[in-house]
Computed example of a mutant assay.
Amino acid sequence: MKKQFSVIVIMAQLLGACTTQVGMLGDADDKNGEAEIPEAVIQLAASNQNVHSARMQPDGCYWYEYSGPVETTLLPLLTADGKRICGQAGAGETTPGYST
């Protein structure tokens, strides 16, 4: 009985290791996990952010993955002066290619 239980536990662990992790950002616009980030967005973003993980979210703004000591979370992509970077104009937000 103990041997059979051990085999079941080992098989469950092996199957768990074979699963794919689904990202927080989704992949509707991604190609092989990489979405094209416009050059204007990269130039607008403050230097302390992971611009290469940025993706446009349903709110029309860019968000990036911040990897903290405990978890990875989404944060809005900001300019050096603290404005959000969005694809569509909004109050207090910066639209790439346009000055606000």
Rank of each mutant, 00 (worst) to 15 (best):
L44C: 09
Y62W: 09
I37R: 03
Y66R: 02
N48Y: 05
A54L: 00
K31H: 12
S47C: 02
G90W: 13
V70I: 05
P58H: 06
L75W: 11
L77A: 07
L75D: 14
T72D: 00
A89C: 04
L44P: 15
D29W: 14
I85C: 06
D29K: 08
C61S: 07
V41L: 13
A54Q: 02
K31Q: 11
A40V: 07
D29T: 14
V41R: 14
E65S: 00
C61H: 05
L74M: 03
V70F: 12
Y62D: 14
S47V: 02
E34D: 06
L74S: 06
P58C: 10
Q57D: 05
Y62T: 04
S53I: 02
L74G: 05
I85D: 14
G60N: 10
Y62R: 01
S47F: 01
I42Q: 11
H52N: 09
C86R: 15
G90Q: 14
W63E: 14
D81S: 08
I42L: 08
N48K: 01
R84Y: 01
N48M: 00
P38K: 09
L75F: 06
E36S: 03
N32Y: 11
A54M: 01
N48S: 02
N32P: 10
Q43L: 09
E39D: 12
L77Q: 07
T72G: 02
L77M: 11
K83E: 12
D30W: 07
P38F: 04
D81V: 07
L75S: 06
L78I: 13
N50V: 05
N32D: 15
L77G: 13
L74F: 02
I37L: 10
W63K: 01
L77T: 09
V51Q: 11
R55V: 06
K31M: 07
P76C: 04
A40D: 15
I85R: 07
L75N: 09
P58S: 11
Y66D: 10
K31T: 13
I42T: 11
G87L: 01
M56C: 01
A40R: 07
Q88I: 12
K83L: 09
V41S: 15
E36G: 05
G82T: 07
L77F: 08
K83Y: 13
D29C: 12
A35E: 15
D29G: 04
K31C: 07
D81H: 03
N50Q: 10
A35C: 12
W63Q: 05
Q49N: 00
A80F: 04
E39I: 05
C61P: 11
P38I: 00
T79Y: 09
R55L: 07
C86A: 13
G82F: 13
T79C: 03
A80G: 02
R55G: 01
C61A: 02
H52I: 00
D30K: 06
A46M: 08
D30C: 11
P69S: 00
L77S: 09
Q43V: 06
G82V: 10
E36F: 09
Q43I: 08
A46Q: 12
S67E: 10
G90P: 12
P38V: 10
T72H: 03
W63I: 00
I85G: 14
A35N: 08
Y64H: 11
E39T: 12
W63S: 11
A80L: 04
C86D: 14
A45F: 09
D59K: 03
G68N: 03
T73S: 02
L78R: 04
I42C: 08
Q88Y: 11
